[in-house]
Design a binder for these strands. Structure first.
Lengths: 137, 137
DNA sequence: CTGCATCCCTTTGGATACTG
DNA sequence: CAGTATCCAAAGGGATGCAG
């Protein structure tokens, strides 16, 4: 699934890697859900709302692979699996929270700008008094 | 790209919205590139390395729509367009930086865990002495 | 130089069915 | 309950050509 060995481009900066992970759309939600404590698979599925079991499984596997989540199987008659954030997983919560705070703060302005843009038809007529004949580069 | 009116699910929390935006893979890079100052389209394309003009245009339009980036057209013989972060755009830099720092700090551990997981074949045999017949949780 | 439109291949992800 | 496998539709995204 996740594979970057054959990357056609030479970008392997850490930020890029992380963004690819949290860009998973579900990863952030799973981490957030697990912040309060360990949860079972079905509990996660119920709590996240909208995630298919396929996506949930994929996301959990990826997090487990990266050492951000532990997977504990209890060999009982009704199979029971609990997922829990590791130390590293918990530390991810901070920057994620910062992003969420930013979202909460700026979302109204963003929504407003979005409506303005859509309604106005984004007429790009805006320009400055560009009197520089040749920019040279 | 822009369309969430017909969302089958009822999740419109701000965090979700923002993550969808930065999950764009390119958005973060564009914002980062523009942090040092205004850049022209071609400069952005050169600096980001790997982005197609289609993706770059899309990303810039989305950012512009959200009021995070301004687009200034200089009506010259060789058309010239400069993109610049707005105030709101600059504030996004902080939480993004936090995430990047987290990435830089934890990437070694993540890479190690990843290798461990891949090599070990992730044998899930791990379990505790599950003697609780009914979890009650 | 900037960027829109088209073609088309790749990836993502949901629904469903089946195993342990 | 937890998870895998398969099928298939929709979105993502590159390449190219053309317009302002």
């Amino acid at each position: 699934m996740r594979e970057e060995a054959a990357d056609p481009y030479s970008r392997h900066c850490p930020s890029r890697q992380v963004l690819d992970r949290i860009g998973d759309r579900w990863t952030v939600l799973v981490v957030g859900a697990l912040n309060d404590g360990p949860l079972r698979f079905s509990q996660l599925a119920a709590r996240i709302d909208g995630v298919s079991q396929k996506m949930l499984t994929q996301t959990l596997r990826a997090l487990q692979r990266d050492g951000l989540v532990t997977r504990t199987v209890y060999p009982q008659v009704p199979p029971r699996v609990e997922y829990e954030l590791t130390e590293a997983g918990h530390t991810l919560q901070e920057p994620l929270k910062a992003l969420e705070d930013w979202a909460t703060t700026h979302m109204p302005a963003i929504l407003a700008a979005r409506q303005r843009y859509d309604i106005a038809g984004h007429q790009a007529g805006q320009h400055h008094g560009g009197m520089a004949p040749e920019p040279a580069r």
